[in-house]
């Protein structure tokens, strides 16, 4: 099993590379370290279980995703399948300093790529 970076985590910059992602929020500093990744479309699940500092992969793009991520202290949000949020949602994320990313991979593919690159889930 490949677990190269699991102890030290992976930087957001590296995540962008792995997912061939677009940084929607512009010139954010992307040096923060991602410890764990979670995939869900349930905001209450994020609020109940996801630790601050985690990265969220989701298929939802409404403004409550940004509020939920902000309130939960997440390190960033990746929108999958090339579904981009609206300008208003991106503006809100910039306002609160939450990096947003867009990948054309599906949730399953995006998660798989990150996992193979050494990012574990939160139960490991």
């Amino acid at each position: 099993m490949i677990k190269s970076n699991s102890e030290s985590g992976t930087s957001l910059r590296h995540v962008v590379k792995i997912l061939n992602a677009e940084v929607l929020t512009g010139e954010e500093p992307l040096d923060q370290t991602v410890q764990h990744v979670e995939c869900t479309d349930l905001m209450s699940q994020v609020l109940a279980f996801i630790k601050s500092g985690n990265l969220l992969l989701t298929g939802l793009t409404n403004i409550q995703v940004v509020n939920t991520a902000d309130i939960s202290g997440l390190i960033g949000v990746v929108f999958v399948r090339g579904r981009s949020p609206s300008k208003e949602v991106i503006a809100k994320a910039k306002e609160v300093g939450l990096p947003l990313f867009l990948t054309s991979y599906s949730m399953y593919e995006a998660a798989g790529h990150l996992y193979l690159n050494g990012l574990p889930g939160s139960t490991e």
């Binding site: 479309d41 349930l42 905001m43 209450s44 699940q45 609020l47 109940a48 989701t58 939802l60 409404n62 409550q64 995703v65 939920t68």
Partner: peptide, 10 residues
Amino acid sequence: MGFGAGMGLP
């Protein structure tokens, strides 16, 4: 919208 999991009150 991503709500309705029945987890809010708990």
